[in-house]
C-alpha cells in the first residue's frame, strides 16, 4: 500500500486546510484573539509534515481542528475528501504530556484502546505486549507510569497511539521534555515506525533541527496571528538515518534555510517592536 514518495506520481491530498482562520475570545475583555489566519496547506498520505513556529503561534490550533476538537472560524478542513465535522477518529493525538493513566500499569495503558474496541482481554494483552516490544519497553509492562522515566512514558504513549492505529498521527511537541540524546532516539524511532506503518504525521515543533530531520516537508509559521511564511520541501532521502543526518550537507543546507526563515521572522519582529 505504501509507495516511495520519491518515485510515486503526486498523490491526492489526505489532509487539506483551505483559507483557515481561527479566532478565540480574548482571555480579558470581549475582544477576539486571532490564532491562525489565511492558512492553506495540504499533506499527502504517508508523508510527514513538520509545523515549525514560535510558541503560541497557533500551530496546535491546526491539529485540534484536524482532530475535530473545534471548527475553524473561517475556511474548511478536509480529511480524505470530506469536511471534518465532529471528532475525527482517524487521527490520534500525542502531546508534550503523555496522558497515560497513572492508575494503570504500562501494559494496561497500552491495552486501553483494545479494551475500548471491545477486544477479548487475552488477545488485547497479547497485542499490547507486541507493541510494548516494538517500542522497546519489554520488562516494564508491569510498572506504573510514575515508576518509569519520562522517555519510557513517551514510548508507552507512542505504543498506545499505535494500538488504536489511527491513520494520521497528530504530534504536538511530544519530545520537548526529553534530553537531547533521548530525543534523537525517539525521533529516529518515530520516523522509522511512521514510514514502516505508512502513517501520515503532522508534527508540531518549535525546534528547527527537529523540523528538518523529521519532515518530508515543513510549514514555517509566523508569530501570532500564525500564518504560513513558507512551506519548505525537505528533499532528504525517505529512509534517512537520523543518527548521522547532521553530517549530511543537504541537511545542513535545509536546516540553514529553516533557521533563516525563523530568524528572519524574529529579526522583523524586533524591528517592528522598535518602531
Amino acid at each position: 500500500m505504501h509507495m516511495d514518495s520519491d518515485i510515486s506520481p503526486p498523490l491526492p491530498a489526505l489532509v487539506s486546510f483551505a483559507g483557515i482562520q481561527k479566532t478565540f475570545a480574548a482571555p480579558e475583555g470581549d475582544g477576539t484573539l486571532v490564532a491562525v489566519e489565511g492558512v492553506d496547506l495540504t499533506l499527502e498520505e504517508g508523508h510527514i509534515l513538520t509545523i515549525l513556529g514560535p510558541s503560541g503561534c497557533g500551530k496546535s490550533t491546526l491539529l485540534n481542528m484536524l482532530a475535530g476538537i473545534y471548527k475553524p472560524t473561517r475556511g474548511t478542513v478536509t480529511y480524505r475528501g470530506a469536511q471534518v465535522s465532529g471528532l475525527n477518529l482517524r487521527t490520534g493525538y500525542m502531546t508534550q504530556n503523555d496522558h497515560l493513566l497513572p492508575w494503570r500499569r504500562i501494559l494496561a495503558n497500552v491495552r486501553a484502546p483494545y479494551e475500548i474496541a471491545g477486544m477479548p482481554r487475552r488477545s488485547a494483552t497479547a497485542k499490547a505486549m507486541e507493541l510494548i516490544d516494538l517500542v522497546g519497553l519489554t520488562g516494564f509492562e508491569n510498572a506504573y507510569p510514575t515508576q518509569v522515566s519520562g522517555g519510557m512514558r513517551k514510548r508507552a504513549s507512542l505504543a498506545r497511539l499505535l494500538a488504536y492505529n489511527p491513520e494520521t498521527l497528530l504530534l504536538d511537541e511530544p519530545f520537548v521534555a526529553l534530553d537531547a540524546q533521548l530525543r534523537l532516539a525517539m525521533q529516529a524511532e518515530l520516523r522509522s515506525l511512521a514510514r514502516r506503518l505508512g502513517k501520515t504525521v503532522l508534527f508540531v515543533t518549535h525546534d528547527v533541527d527537529e523540523a528538518a530531520a523529521l519532515g518530508d516537508k515543513c510549514a514555517v509559521f509566523t508569530a501570532r496571528p500564525g500564518r504560513i511564511r513558507q512551506v519548505v520541501d525537505i528533499d532528504l532521502p525517505a529512509d534517512r538515518d537520523l543518527m548521522t543526518l547532521r553530517q549530511n550537507p543537504d541537511y545542513g543546507r535545509i536546516a540553514a534555510k529553516l533557521w533563516d526563515l525563523v530568524t528572519r521572522e524574529s529579526r522583523e519582529g524586533r524591528i517592528s517592536h522598535e518602531t
Binding site: 487521527t91 493525538y93 486501553a112 474496541a117
Partner: peptide, 9 residues
C-alpha cells in the same frame, strides 16, 4: 485526557 480517549473511539 478525555479528548485523547474520545479520539481512541
Amino acid at each position: 485526557q478525555q479528548t485523547v480517549f474520545r479520539l481512541m473511539g
